[in-house]
Structures are given as structure tokens and as C-alpha cells.
């Protein structure tokens, strides 16, 4: 009975993972397909991989995506950590009010966020790189705050006071005592913001104007003409890189966990 239940559990997990990963498998296979048609197998090739680096359009979009995601998530992390520290010190009513506004970009439909920002940007600046960056920061910060806030609430406030008592000035105490305690939350907030920026299409689509393209908007633009196989190759590369990084991080943190248990 136990065995049967375990078997069903495993089978079910397998089916869900199959659903989630089957399209990715198809993508990876397509990236090696020597036929431009998406459904016919035309033999193995690596030419789409060469093509990725030869296409200025793709390299530009990749570069723009990386720059925007990286700078937006960095700025959002600084802004968000400061905000979380400030908000957590507020009285209950202002705390609730600020958190309610903070939640708007997260719960609202992204199309509404994109449109409202576009309407506002158009009033005082040309749509382009800057407007996309500002928009990304705007939807990134709430996630940073949500990641940092629990750590702040767990943090022992008296530690900061103890540092001051022992002669540390405010700046020193902040960097040496407060920040290290928030480290986990800050890191996860940053990665979360980065992932969301990388994956965003809708907000970028409405705030980008002509001329600027991220990978998402470039792919969307190609939809009607048919996606260039180089895109599959690029996705496969990104997927492989992320997979390797995650495995390495996982092994490393796994070792650390075990070390903690051993002591």
C-alpha cells in the first residue's frame, strides 16, 4: 500500500515535470535542427549557434536585456533595501498604507502597469532605453521589499544598538552589523528582480518605443514572420548556463548545510 502510494506520487511528479519541461526539450532539439521548418527534422547542425554570434540584432537585444535587467535589479535592490528598513520602522497605519501602494505593481495586471507608465512617460520624455529601465525598476522594487522584509522582522534590533554602544558609528554599524543579517533576503530579492526583469515582455513592450528591443520584444516581433532558429540556439545556451550555475550553487550550499549539521 505504502509502495503503491509512493509509486503514484513519483509518477505524478514525473508527469507534471514532463509537462513543464517538454516544450524546453522541443526547443533544444529545434536548436540543432538543420531544417528551417519547425516540424521536420533536417539533420543535426550547429550553424544556428554560430548564427547567434553573427546576428547584430540578436546580440544587441541580448546586450540590452542584460544591461536593463542587471541595472534595474541593482538599483531596485538598493532602493528596496533602504525602503524596507524605513518602512519596517513605521507605525502600523503608515506601514499598511505604504505596503498597499507597494503591492499595486505586483497584483495589478502587467498590461495596466505598462500602459499607465507609457501614458506618463510620453508626457515628458521620449520612449526608449531610459523609460524601459525606469519601468523595470518600478516593478522590481516590490519584490525586493517582500524578500527583505521578513529578514528585517526576524532581525534582533538590539544588535544594532549593541554595536553603537560598543563605539561603532551609525554607518559602520549599518554595514557591519545590520546588512550582514539581511544578506540572504537581499540576495534572493536581487535574483528575483533580475529573473522577473529578464522574463518581462508586456511592460517592456508598452514602454520601449521604436528602436529599442529586448529579447522578448524581438521574439514577439518575429512571431508573424517566423522565429529565427538562432533564437532557439540562444535560449539553449542561456538555459545551459543557468542550469550549470544553479547546480554549482546547489552543491556549494548543500556542502555548507552539511558542514553546519556536522558541527
Amino acid at each position: 500500500m505504502e509502495r503503491l502510494k509512493n509509486f503514484i506520487s513519483k509518477a505524478y511528479i514525473f508527469i507534471i515535470l514532463l509537462f513543464l519541461y517538454a516544450p524546453i526539450a522541443v526547443l533544444i532539439v529545434s536548436s540543432f535542427n538543420d531544417s528551417k521548418s519547425r516540424v521536420v527534422w533536417g539533420g543535426f547542425t550547429l550553424r544556428w549557434y554560430r548564427g547567434v554570434f553573427e546576428s547584430d540584432q540578436i546580440m544587441d537585444a541580448l546586450f540590452t536585456t542584460m544591461i536593463i535587467s542587471l541595472s534595474a535589479s541593482l538599483i531596485a535592490t538598493v532602493l528596496g533595501v533602504m525602503a524596507a528598513i524605513g518602512i519596517s520602522a513605521m507605525k502600523k497605519r503608515s506601514y499598511k498604507a505604504v505596503m498597499a501602494v507597494n503591492n499595486i505593481p505586483m497584483v495589478n495586471a502587467d498590461i495596466v502597469i505598462g500602459i499607465s507608465l507609457m501614458l506618463w512617460f510620453i508626457k515628458f520624455m521620449p520612449l526608449g532605453f531610459m523609460s524601459v529601465l525606469l519601468a523595470h525598476i518600478t516593478f522590481d522594487v516590490p519584490y525586493v521589499i517582500l524578500s527583505v522584509m521578513p529578514k528585517l522582522q526576524q532581525m534582533n534590533v538590539s544588535v544594532y544598538e549593541a554595536a553603537r554602544d560598543l563605539g561603532a558609528n551609525a554607518v559602520y554599524a549599518f554595514f557591519k552589523v545590520v546588512l550582514p543579517q539581511l544578506y540572504g533576503g537581499i540576495l534572493s530579492g536581487f535574483f528575483l528582480a533580475f529573473t522577473i526583469s529578464m522574463d518581462d515582455f508586456v511592460v517592456t513592450y508598452f514602454t520601449k518605443g521604436a528602436g529599442v528591443d529586448t529579447l522578448s520584444t524581438l521574439i514577439y516581433g518575429e512571431l508573424k514572420k517566423g522565429i529565427k532558429p538562432e533564437m532557439y540556439a540562444l535560449s539553449t545556451i542561456i538555459f545551459a548556463l543557468v542550469l550549470i550555475v544553479l547546480i554549482v550553487v546547489n552543491i556549494y550550499s548543500g556542502k555548507e548545510e552539511r558542514a553546519v549539521i556536522d558541527h
Binding site: 515535470l17 516544450p23 529573473t195 515582455f201 522565429i227 532557439y232 538555459f239
Partner: peptide, 23 residues
């Protein structure tokens, strides 16, 4: 991580692949 790893591939491309599977 296993659950959110697919998010690292652009969702439009993933949908296209899903469409290929269902076509």
C-alpha cells in the same frame, strides 16, 4: 529550483514549443 528553471527560457519561445507539441 526545478519548478522555476523553465522561467529562464523566454515564455514566448516556450509557448511556441508547446504549440508545436499540440499542433
Amino acid at each position: 529550483l526545478v519548478l522555476i528553471l523553465p522561467m529562464w527560457i523566454n515564455f514566448i519561445l516556450r509557448l511556441l514549443a508547446l504549440q508545436m507539441i499540440l499542433s
